[in-house]
Simulated scan of single mutants.
Amino acid sequence: MCGCTGETPAPPSPSPSTTTTTPPAPATGLTGIPATGGIGVTALLPTGPTLFDADRGPTATPPGYPGGLGVLRVGEQAVLTAYPAGAGHNDPFEMFAYTGASNPPRSLGRAWSVVPGADQESAWLIRQDAPDSCRLQRVSLSGEELGHGQSASCRTEVRAETSHGLLIRINSGSPESTDALIDPETGRTVRQYPRILGATGDWLLLDGFTDLRLLNLRDGSTKPLTRPASGGGPPTVVPSRDGRVFAVDFADPSYRGPRQSRDIWLLSPDTQAWEHAPGMPFITDHLKQGGGIDWSEAGDLVLADGVLAAWHPGEPRWRLGKATLPDGEWNGIAVLP
Score class of each variant (00 low, 15 high):
Pro92Ala: 08
Pro92Tyr: 09
Pro92Asn: 10
Met95Tyr: 09
Met95Leu: 14
Met95Glu: 06
Phe96Arg: 04
Phe96Pro: 00
Ala97Gly: 08
Ala97Asn: 08
Ala97Ile: 11
Tyr98Ser: 10
Thr99Val: 07
Thr99Gly: 14
Thr99Cys: 07
Gly100Gln: 04
Ala101Trp: 03
Ser102Tyr: 09
Asn103Ala: 15
Asn103Phe: 10
Pro104Asn: 06
Pro105Tyr: 11
Pro105Phe: 13
Arg106Phe: 01
Arg106Pro: 02
Gly109Leu: 13
Arg110Ser: 10
Arg110Gln: 15
Trp112Val: 03
Trp112His: 03
Ser113Arg: 04
Ser113Glu: 06
Val114Ile: 06
Val114Glu: 13
Val115Leu: 03
Val115Ala: 02
Pro116Lys: 08
Asp119Phe: 08
Gln120Asn: 13
Glu121Val: 11
Glu121Leu: 05
Ser122Leu: 06
Trp124Pro: 02
Trp124Lys: 06
Trp124Ser: 04
Leu125Arg: 05
Leu125Met: 08
Leu125Asn: 01
Ile126Gly: 03
Ile126Ala: 04
Ile126Met: 11
Ile126Lys: 01
Arg127Asn: 10
Asp129Ala: 13
Asp132Lys: 14
Asp132Glu: 15
Asp132Gly: 09
Cys134Tyr: 01
Leu136Phe: 00
Leu136Trp: 02
Leu136Cys: 04
Gln137Ile: 12
Arg138Asn: 01
Val139Ser: 08
Val139Asp: 06
Gly143Glu: 05
Gly143Cys: 07
Gly143Phe: 03
Glu144Trp: 00
Glu145Trp: 09
Leu146Ala: 04
His148Leu: 15
His148Tyr: 09
Gly149Thr: 09
Ser151Tyr: 02
Ala152Asp: 05
Ala152Cys: 02
Ser153Tyr: 00
Ser153Cys: 09
Cys154Tyr: 02
Val158Glu: 12
Val158Pro: 07
Arg159Ile: 10
Ala160Asn: 03
Thr162Leu: 11
Thr162Gln: 09
His164Lys: 13
Gly165Lys: 12
Gly165Phe: 10
Gly165Thr: 12
Leu166Gln: 10
Ile170Arg: 15
Ile170Tyr: 02
Asn171Ala: 15
Ser172Tyr: 01
Gly173Arg: 09
Ser174Ile: 00
Ser174Gln: 09
Pro175Arg: 03
Glu176Gly: 10
Glu176Asp: 15
Glu176Gln: 14
Thr178His: 07
Asp179Trp: 11
Ala180His: 00
Leu181Gly: 06
Ile182Glu: 03
Ile182Thr: 00
Ile182Ala: 02
Ile182Ser: 02
Pro184Ala: 05
